[in-house]
Computed example of a mutant assay.
Amino acid sequence: MRLAHLIRTTSNIRTRKRTRALAALLGTAALGATLTGCNGYDATYPSSARSHTDAHPAAFAATSDGGTVDCRKAKCVALTFDAGPSVRTPQILAILAKYHVHATFFTLGKNHVMKHPEMVKAMAAQGHEVETLTWSHQILTKISKDEVRKEITEGRDAVEKVIGVRPTLLRPPQGRTSSTVTGIVKDLGMSEVVWSSDGADYKTTDSKLIQERILKKTKRDGIILLHDLVDPTNKGYNGTIAAIPGIISTLQQQGYTFVTVKQLLAPGNPQPGKVYK
């Protein structure tokens, strides 16, 4: 009897220890999840953004027959280009015109907008959205608040100076943002846009690989990331131009309609301080 009692007591002690250990582990995991949320940001998806219905009909994407596309019903996707304009911008614009596609360009002010203002004007003239990727592509989570504000405002103002329209969308360089950055962006009356499909064209010159990556990751309401930039080291970006036609034509065959970021969110309007993905 004593032996049986001792065995039961030992077993109960072990069970209580395992329970306490499991509770501690779950508590740590929950704390980690909370910290991640506090230190990062909450993304808003296009389907959620469209819950606002106060936008003007012009916010919808125009079709070739004079109608509009409502992304609440259509299978939409937004094509975006980072880091331009560059000497390759005319090639991109020609491809987009050929396929009747409008895109969103997140431009860099220094050495790009200021160096190629005529290309920025061409983007706007063809109906593309011209937004900002900041002034000089500094990582916003690694610089001071004053520097963050300066990077954003100088990049934004460079575009406004050229086309007379002030950008309201910011793409944070490398997609890196934080609660501090979003607070500054909100104060500036702007929204942030990251992406859901990345061709990683900054890592390869293989156009087929870039295309495969995009097609594999793209889903309805997706935001595609490519780059409009010449890489001075000649190690990347060189495969982007050749990949664009295949990406567009294949997705169009699959029933996708290409729209700009703001059209993807319509009839909702981008809300200051929100991060769209």
Rank of each mutant, 00 (worst) to 15 (best):
G255P: 10
Y202H: 03
V181M: 05
I244Y: 05
K216S: 14
Q252Y: 13
L170V: 04
T233K: 14
S196Q: 10
V185I: 12
Q174S: 13
I163H: 04
T177F: 04
P245A: 10
Q174E: 15
G255I: 15
D228K: 04
T182P: 03
L209H: 06
E160V: 04
V165Y: 08
L225T: 01
S196C: 08
I184G: 01
A200Y: 09
V181P: 02
L169C: 05
A243G: 10
D187L: 00
P173H: 11
D206E: 09
Y202G: 12
V165P: 02
L209E: 15
Q174C: 02
L188G: 03
Q271I: 11
T250F: 12
T260P: 08
K217T: 11
G268A: 10
R213Q: 05
L226D: 12
Y202M: 00
G164D: 10
T204W: 08
G199M: 02
V159C: 06
N238L: 13
T177N: 09
V162S: 12
G183I: 00
K161F: 00
R213A: 02
D221Y: 04
A243L: 14
L251M: 15
V259Y: 08
L209K: 14
D206A: 13
P173R: 09
T177E: 03
Q263Y: 04
L170R: 05
P245H: 06
K208W: 00
N238C: 13
Q174G: 01
I244M: 14
L215H: 02
V261A: 03
G273Q: 01
I214T: 07
S178R: 10
R166W: 05
L226G: 10
V165R: 14
K274D: 06
K186N: 05
G175W: 09
P270S: 10
A200K: 14
P272G: 11
T177I: 04
V194S: 13
P172S: 10
V159M: 11
K262I: 01
V193L: 06
T182G: 05
I247M: 07
Y256M: 00
R220H: 15
L188R: 09
I247N: 03
L251Y: 03
T240K: 10
I248F: 05
N234F: 08
V230P: 04
I241D: 11
S179P: 00
P267E: 11
T205Q: 06
I210T: 03
V162C: 11
